[in-house]
């Protein structure tokens, strides 16, 4: 069973230091996510959801414990090794969209491929396909400010798919969207899951959260169910 876990956390703690005061954000997380699973993480504000996502996504290192991606311990890796894991294995979708304002939709989607050194022709071709996949085939040359919230979030998803990663981490992707656009984003994520991607979704919306195969509830930095 363990061999199939694409993500595994063992005794993970994360403590932030604020003005010399230790702020525990995660206090001993044990967690396994199977390849191809659709997981939602729910919990009150400040419970440590984003912190957990950052650790799974190799953006951060735990204070204690170990994080495994595809069986490899990444908790002590160098900055560059972590960057390579993010580039190859992880696609992030954030609540605040986080697109680069100067770049057009397609250029934003090209970004992870750019860092991976994909040649321009291939990069542009794939970015266009991904934008079509999320229904933005006619918005490729638009800049983020010329797109609606839902459209921006779809650009983010397309970007997350750039290097065809196994894991999509979506931290409140519908948080800034109306119900209709939010539903659209959920559909895309679920479609990706059907195609085999592992989806980890943080959400405050119970209705959305309940649609996942696995629901993880978190409170005060601990998993409570």
């Amino acid at each position: 069973m363990k061999g199939l876990d694409i993500v595994r956390l063992e005794g993970v703690e994360k403590t932030y230091l604020m003005d010399r005061v230790k702020v525990p954000a995660l206090r001993g997380i044990n967690l396994s996510i199977e390849k191809g699973d659709y997981v939602s993480i729910m919990g009150p504000s400040g419970s440590g959801k984003s912190t957990l996502m950052n650790l799974i996504g190799a953006l951060d290192r735990p204070t204690k414990g170990r994080v495994f991606i595809e069986g490899r311990d990444i908790s002590k890796l160098s900055d560059n090794s972590l960057a390579r894991i993010r580039r190859e294995k992880i696609g992030f979708v954030f609540q605040q969209f986080n697109l680069i304002p100067r770049l057009t939709a397609i250029e934003n989607v090209e970004l992870p491929m750019w860092f991976a050194g994909v040649p321009k022709v291939q990069r542009v071709k794939r970015a266009a396909e991904l934008l079509k996949l999320v229904g933005l085939g006619d918005r490729m040359k638009h800049r983020p400010t010329e797109l609606s919230g839902g459209e921006r979030q779809r650009v983010c998803i397309a970007r997350a798919l750039g290097n065809d990663p196994e894991i999509i981490l979506a931290d409140e992707p519908t948080g800034n969207l109306d119900t209709k656009s939010g539903e659209g984003i959920m559909r895309i994520l679920e479609e990706l899951n059907e195609r085999g991607k592992t989806i980890v979704l943080v959400t405050h919306e119970r209705e959305f959260g309940k649609r996942a195969n696995t629901i993880i509830k978190i409170r005060d930095g601990r998993i409570v169910g």
């Binding site: 953006l59 900055d79 680069i100 970004l111 992870p112």
Partner: peptide
């Protein structure tokens, strides 16, 4: 700053 965060999240190495 945020953009640099995005670049790093999407896989930019320090040298990039």
């Amino acid at each position: 700053t945020q953009e640099i965060g995005i670049m790093k999240a999407t896989g930019a190495t320090n040298s990039q």
